[in-house]
């Protein structure tokens, strides 16, 4: 995907991927649009039937491809169209978030929010807040392939003991 190279008031131009569930959060986003609420344009959304169908692989692949932040938005607990799909979302989210933090990508690049179909304003507010948070974290360190940077070749060399003395 193309990215504007120039800075945005000194901050990096960030790209956020939002997974929105069909029944609640996508409708909430739609409501935000219809109500002409203003929010930053950095978000690309993907509609899924239930936030519980979002695999950790999708989130990880998004970061691999250079996305700076990922938002997962689903129905409130108890309101899931498929009854308990969002229980799985919540559990998976906790694992993915902590793994991202441990690897060094950063837990502030991933967020989970419950947004209902009536919460257009909440959706806009979440986008505003999360965009600010991701801008704070800066461009994702995975925007370019890490191992192609000559500076990092040395790190790879040092990481492993030589096989021969």
């Amino acid at each position: 995907m193309s990215r504007k190279p120039e800075n945005n008031n000194g901050k990096d131009e960030v790209k956020i991927l939002a997974f929105l569930c069909n029944w609640c959060s996508y409708a909430g986003a739609d409501l935000a649009g219809v109500s002409r609420l203003q929010y930053p344009p950095n978000v690309v959304d993907i509609r899924v039937m239930c936030s519980g169908t979002i695999s950790p692989y999708h989130v990880l692949k998004a970061f691999q491809m250079g996305i700076d932040g990922v938002l997962i938005a689903g129905c409130h607990i108890g309101d899931c169209h498929y009854i308990k799909g969002n229980y799985m979302t919540y559990k998976r989210f906790q694992v993915i978030r902590d793994v991202l933090e441990f690897i060094g990508i950063g837990e502030d690049r991933l967020r989970l929010e419950w947004v209902s179909a009536a919460e257009g304003e909440k959706f806009a507010e979440v986008i505003r807040e999360f965009t600010g948070q991701v801008e704070q974290a800066g461009a994702s360190p995975l925007r370019t392939r890490w191992e192609e940077n000559p500076a990092n070749r040395e790190r790879i060399r040092k990481a492993f003991k030589p096989l021969l003395p």
């Binding site: 933090e101 690897i103 060094g104 890490w146 191992e147 990092n152 790190r155 790879i156 040092k158």
Partner: peptide
């Protein structure tokens, strides 16, 4: 966990890169 995130990422990627 005691390392700053940038160093931690470098640590992991330098291991994964081989």
């Amino acid at each position: 966990e005691g390392l700053p995130p940038g160093e931690r990422l470098d640590y992991w990627l330098s291991r994964f890169a081989a």
